[in-house]
Amino acid sequence: MTETHADYRLSQLDQLEAESIHIFREVAAEFEKPVLMFSGGKDSIVMMRLAEKAFYPAKIPFPVLQVDTGYDFPEVLACRDNWVNRLGARLIVASVEEAIKDGIVVDDGKTSRNRLQIGTLLNALEEGAFTAAFGGGRRDEEKARAKERVYSHRDEFGQWDPKNQRPELWSLYNGRLHEGEHMRIFPISNWTELDIWHYIGREGIEIPSIYFSHQRRVFERDGMLLSESEHNPVRSGETVEERTVRFRTVGDLTLTGCVESEADTIDKIIDEIAIARVTERGATRGDDRFSEAAMEDRKKEGYF
């Protein structure tokens, strides 16, 4: 927990926490209808914790929105439910399956679930008339994100215009919107992967069990280790075997690879990340690999 110091120093983790709490409160005060986008991943769990702290002892004053790809890890959904129940928050689930059925997005068999999430998410935001959506994006994740504001403006089509962002000075955030527009809010913009892990360790909070080392039946595809699943048919030449693995990121299970790892505690995970030589997205996310500008393209369309 935060310690106050005789010399009035605040550790960098405490400074990050204070900045994020400030952002949560600012949004809750200025926006009519905020919503927290919860993926079940460690970043969105840290967001839940920060929101909990920002409004304590009151409940968080906005609902939690999750996009269910239909290909989510069951462990992640279980963790989501525990969090939502503990905080007494309202959960809204936007299902990609249902969006396909309703014709909101088109599953042509080639488009990944991650990509279909975009339309599903935008539709859910529109249906709920949400004016601000908290996302767990961090600027250290990817080059395009490094330039994104904390308050990231989206037009009425949900699109991000990277060349026309509002200047963001001091800690004065501009939340002005026109009808139909909304704001993506990134309260943990300045956190790094290591900060996230240290915070989870310090706070002793629950994260999905798949982040820790476990036995899993996996196969190799395009240099990634993917989980055996009914949604992910094994192709010829691929062999399934049981290995000791863990996940570094959490997403669509047909695209999210795991790494071989013995790390079964937060401290061991931190040690492992500290010597990792590949970024978390580069190692385990098929969706960022297609081009150097893959993330920028998806962001423009309205991805988190």
Binding site: K143, R145, A146, K147, Q165
Partner: peptide, 20 residues
């Protein structure tokens, strides 16, 4: 560090980018 595609194309840095 030159993040956005237009910057990579022009070879200049046109916006504030944050690094850690």
């Amino acid at each position: 560090t030159d993040g956005l595609r237009s910057e990579r194309e022009q070879g200049i840095t046109i916006d504030v980018a944050y690094r850690y």
